[in-house]
Design a protein around this nucleic acid. Structure first.
Lengths: 221, 221
DNA sequence: TTCATCCTCCAAATATCTTTGGAATATTGT
DNA sequence: ACAATATTCCAAAGATATTTGGAGGATGAA
């Protein structure tokens, strides 16, 4: 492809660089993970089920596109999203896919199941209920993500452990589960598990990144 | 790459399809043109300076990604954006590029010049001024795009013809020029030309697609 | 220093994308 | 039927991306 300096072509080429960064499922998964908080390369590789060398290469591509920043601490290199706008654009991309591609809508339904049937709770309602004490909120993401940032007052119950800890949950209070975002299956899955056990459970509409982006408070280390 | 049916991988793969559609400067240019209204393949090829066969191939890719719909009329195939969300996401992509990539910001400045110095007029202010009669609005896009859709009351003065028609413009009224959008150089360029001729001119903030997306009225054939 | 750990870099193999010119197809009008 | 126009399809060449395994560099701990 031509270099194309100084003209409209050069500008379009720059825009396309961002498109290219978002053109690969592995990179999109890394962005999802990074939206939960900064993580080391090796940690990301494990969480995404990718080889280390490949993870490093993809993170380098994201960095070259300006979507990710890094911080070196000792032997670790921590990566994080460059800003809220990254997450916002990725979400717009996903929503566009779901709206415009029947195959995407179908894949979303296959992965998430029927979320509407679980009557998701909105941000505002959860915030109100937390103030009133009429709901308990649980964070069903892996513990490391809870540790990086969570909704104040949330209990960390990773999905893996939910079944074993069901009896410790209140039967007389509404339980709201949240996870990584609107395309994360953890919270809906958790709500189903809890409902099957006779609890009153709902997923949060959107996950922690959306909660934060709405200007609501989070608790960080 | 794996097929990956039924799982998270399948969903991410669908999201990445949209990313891939936006990963190429030629396709981004076609999307820009389509945001101005539906056009035939051959017309788009001419406007974008691309070969016909390539234009057809890229449009096919956009169609496969669900971003573009087509309508056949006689011997022509008219393409149009599948919805407002397409334009919105493309704009988010461009803004992200400009914010996160220094090279993109630099290319934008090189292409657009210093737009802020031209004191762009916002949508609300233009709407008000048009009601009051305290501004004249001119559409400096190619005539075909004006014909497809324009701001009610706008005069069509394609940038090519502006120099020849400067004397017909009022010297005692504020003139607002608009074009394809925030990354189109026509309106800023027109404002500079008019100012150099002693007129009071400004570009509109954002172009016709943004005006329409803000819910303001347009005039269509 | 030596070791273990984390990460990046490299080369190679494979796959995908882009662009071109020309052939093939479709539609309309004569 | 024929010609003219608009579009798609095809094959080929070149350019980019993706992924892997392993080598090598950097850092901190023993």
């Amino acid at each position: 492809m031509m270099a194309g300096t100084g003209t409209k072509t050069a500008l379009l080429e720059q825009f396309a660089r961002i498109g290219r960064a978002l053109a690969n499922p592995a990179r999109l998964e890394l962005l999802d993970l990074l939206a939960q908080g900064e993580r080391s390369v090796d940690d990301l590789a494990r969480a995404a089920g990718m080889r280390l060398s490949n993870t490093s290469a993809q993170l380098k591509a994201l960095q070259a596109a300006g979507l990710v920043h890094t911080r070196k601490e000792g032997v670790h290199v921590y990566h994080r999203l460059a800003g809220d706008d990254v997450e916002h654009t990725v979400e717009a991309l996903k929503d566009l896919a779901r709206t415009r591609l029947a195959a995407a809508e179908q894949a979303a339904r296959a992965y998430l199941g029927d979320v509407a049937a679980l009557e998701p709770i909105g941000h505002a309602e959860l915030a109100r209920r937390l103030n009133e004490g009429t709901a308990v909120v649980i964070d069903v993401r892996p513990a490391a993500e809870y540790a990086a940032s969570h909704i104040p007052g949330a209990l960390s119950i990773p999905l893996d452990e939910l079944a074993a800890r069901l009896d410790a949950l209140p039967r007389d209070t509404r339980i709201v589960a949240y996870c990584r975002g609107p395309y994360c299956a953890y919270a809906p899955e958790a709500a189903r598990t809890m409902r099957a056990h006779g609890l009153t459970a709902h997923p949060l509409q959107g996950g922690l990144p959306q909660w934060r982006r709405a200007g609501l408070p989070t608790e960080n280390p």
